[in-house]
């Protein structure tokens, strides 16, 4: 058997899953960021009735393991409305990333110095302007580094979607092993594909962190 040719073939087959892995990461990170904004706003509200549901949402979503969420959505809700594996995974991962990102955004909002808001108020800006033009832009800066490192964690979390049958990197690796490919090589190749994406991504997140630390004073 030609080992080199086999490894090359493994790279090709498993590589087809890379697109799905990246798609899941990007879609659930973007959709999660959008959903996280209202959750973070509610979470930082001074009114208990507004704040409590957001706190409960964040706690419950983060308190349940990713795999259990995906099983609940795919198998549990699947008996009510039939879902394909990929949409089920996207729903689950978006839900989870919205809760994690909402906590990052909340920390961002809370860490903008209160003087900024007071200064904006003293200049006569309306409450909405104080928030969107003065507090929010600085909050985004503070929330950026932890959110970038969350993207790395999310990338690795997408691997769990293979368990419900999403055709990502690890799914193809498993399939090749089932067809008789050597398991050690197949999962090393799968690991290499994750590293190709995750290592640059985590270096980028450290770079963002470094840049932002130069720009704003994190209190």
């Amino acid at each position: 058997m030609n080992v080199e040719a086999d490894t090359g073939a493994l790279f090709q087959v498993i590589g087809t899953g890379l697109v799905v892995t990246i798609l899941m990461t990007v879609v659930s990170f973007c959709a999660g960021s959008v959903l996280a904004v209202p959750v973070a706003l509610m979470r930082t509200s001074r009114v208990w009735l507004v704040r409590a549901p957001a706190t409960a949402f964040i706690d419950i979503v983060r308190g349940i393991p990713t795999l259990v969420w995906l099983l609940i959505i795919f198998y549990g809700l699947g008996s009510v409305v039939s879902l394909d594996p990929l949409p089920a995974a996207l729903i689950g991962l978006t839900l989870i990333s919205s809760a994690y990102l909402a906590e990052n955004f909340r920390a961002g909002i809370e860490n903008v110095h209160v003087g900024q808001k007071e200064a904006a108020a003293a200049l006569g800006l309306s409450t909405a302007h104080q928030f969107w033009r003065v507090v929010a832009p600085q909050a985004v800066n503070i929330a950026m580094p932890p959110s970038a490192s969350y993207a790395v964690a999310l990338l690795k979390d997408t691997a769990i979607a293979a368990i419900i049958g999403v055709t990502d990197i690890i799914f193809f690796a498993q399939q090749e092993v089932a067809r008789g490919a050597p398991a050690v090589t197949a999962f090393l190749v799968a690991g290499a594909f994750y590293l190709i994406v995750s290592v640059p991504l985590s270096y980028f997140s450290r770079f963002v962190d470094h840049k932002i630390r130069q720009k704003v004073v994190v209190v």
Partner: peptide, 16 residues
């Protein structure tokens, strides 16, 4: 080990 999903490590060990 920080860059690879835990599930890949588990499968590597289990099948490998």
């Amino acid at each position: 080990f920080r860059g690879i999903p835990l599930l890949v490590v588990i499968f590597f060990a289990y099948f490998g």
